[in-house]
Amino acid sequence: MSATQNTRTARAGTTEPAWVRYSLIGLALGFIFLFLLLPLAAVFAEAFRKGFDAYFEAFKEPDAWSAIRLTLITAAIAVPLNLVFGVAAAWAIAKYEFRGKAFLTTLVDLPFSVSPVVAGLIYVLMFGAQGWFGPWLQAHDVKIVFAVPGIVLATIFVTFPFIARELIPLMQAQGTEEEQAAQVLGATGWQTFWYVTLPNIKWGLIYGVILCNARAMGEFGAVSVVSGHIRGQTNTMPLHVEILYNEYQSVAAFAIASLLALLALVTLVIKSFVEWQFERDQKAAALLPPERPTA
């Protein structure tokens, strides 16, 4: 008895009995199924509830197309701006030491913890009719809130930290040695960035960009506050989904929603691919012989 028990415990030193393993796996998969897979499946099931024709009918509406166009335009402005910011912020924070660095890093993260509704509200307070710049904007006939610029601003706010927070830890871990070597060899600042830094951070960069893009295209709360919900003009895809849903056009709402769900799935696939590539590069780098004695 004692002998068999000993061998069993030795084998089971860092794992659990099979029945515990299987019940834990079952419990976890059940939870994932209920909370992740079912909602995802429901989007497509509801979209095709009345067949393919009804599904494609939803995309014949001009309002749907203008919503899709506005979403694409918004992402096309917000993502590149946040990309430039993310790279600049990561360069400043990761490559140099200066006072207040930790505070600056916290400020960069700040938009993540602000409620989307509050994010929308602050732009209404800035540019709305009663806002700081409201009278001036009205006098010059510029519309920001309840128009496209407000939607773009709110989207930039909610997606603000995505790229920066991917790049900062990555560039901090990589240090400045390679850039310093490039400088010593006579490279200009831009050359150093293009040929040394960028190849090193490319996977983190792509990772940040696709997450930023997914959020930019899918943002609802902040955009809802500043949009004004003018059909065909200031409706993004998520807002169009809401309008259709509230008008009991369920199939049309889920048809547009299915596009956004597809976007989410594509995002997850690219993300997994990027993670896989990054790990492969890391492993390859680890296998390389050291270039100099690490004294």
Partner: peptide, 8 residues
Amino acid sequence: PFALPTAV
């Protein structure tokens, strides 16, 4: 949940 728009 990170990638799926909240409205969806």
